[in-house]
Amino acid sequence: KVMEIKLIKGPKGLGFSIAGGVGNQHIPGDNSIYVTKIIEGGAAHKDGRLQIGDKILAVNSVGLEDVMHEDAVAALKNTYDVVYLKVAKP
């Protein structure tokens, strides 16, 4: 199931950690970017929809399929206060 989640960045950013990407696979044979941690009190935690194990398909208009881990981190960092995440639920 794919959904779009709109998050408003807090003082600590979006409030979640990711793993995965080309050269840094979270699941062997899979280059996808996965949510590995939700920080308590952060934007994602308060919103409640993003969960550990969700796959991040895109940030705003930037696709995160088959990208390097660093590029995924940069895509999440290089955002304004309002961030749209395209997410696939497991």
Rank of each mutant, 00 (worst) to 15 (best):
K1M: 05
V2G: 06
V2C: 05
V2L: 04
M3R: 05
M3G: 05
M3F: 15
I5T: 02
I5M: 06
K6P: 04
K6E: 06
K6T: 06
K6Y: 05
I8Y: 15
I8W: 15
I8H: 05
G10F: 04
P11D: 07
K12I: 07
K12W: 05
G13V: 03
G13W: 03
G13N: 06
G13S: 06
G13F: 03
G15W: 00
F16Q: 00
F16G: 00
F16A: 02
I18Q: 02
A19C: 12
A19S: 14
G20H: 03
G20W: 02
G21W: 01
V22Q: 06
V22R: 07
V22F: 07
V22D: 06
G23K: 06
N24W: 07
N24P: 04
I27E: 09
P28L: 09
P28G: 07
G29L: 06
G29H: 13
D30Q: 06
N31V: 04
N31T: 10
N31W: 05
N31S: 08
N31F: 04
S32N: 15
I33Y: 06
V35I: 13
V35W: 00
V35R: 00
V35A: 03
T36D: 15
T36I: 13
T36M: 12
T36Q: 09
K37N: 15
K37V: 07
K37D: 13
I38G: 00
I38S: 00
I39G: 07
E40W: 07
E40I: 14
E40K: 06
G41W: 05
G42E: 12
G42Y: 05
A43S: 13
A43V: 13
A44I: 03
A44G: 03
A44T: 04
A44L: 02
H45Q: 11
H45I: 06
K46F: 11
K46P: 02
K46S: 13
D47W: 01
R49K: 15
L50G: 00
L50A: 01
Q51V: 10
Q51C: 11
I52W: 05
I52R: 10
G53W: 04
D54G: 01
K55T: 08
K55D: 00
K55S: 06
I56W: 00
I56H: 00
L57H: 06
L57W: 04
A58W: 08
A58D: 06
A58N: 11
V59M: 06
V59L: 07
V59T: 03
N60S: 04
N60L: 00
S61Q: 10
S61E: 11
V62A: 14
V62G: 07
G63L: 12
L64E: 02
L64H: 02
L64R: 01
E65V: 10
E65K: 14
E65C: 12
D66S: 13
V67A: 14
V67P: 07
M68F: 10
M68C: 11
H69A: 09
H69C: 11
H69N: 12
E70H: 15
E70V: 14
E70K: 15
D71M: 09
A72K: 01
A72M: 03
V73A: 14
V73W: 07
A74I: 10
A74P: 01
A75H: 14
A75N: 10
L76F: 13
L76N: 01
L76A: 02
L76T: 03
L76I: 13
L76Y: 03
K77N: 10
N78C: 14
N78Q: 12
Y80V: 10
D81I: 04
D81C: 08
D81V: 06
V82Q: 12
V82F: 12
V83F: 08
V83P: 01
L85I: 14
L85S: 01
K86Q: 11
K86D: 13
K86T: 12
V87C: 08
A88Q: 07
K89R: 10
P90F: 07
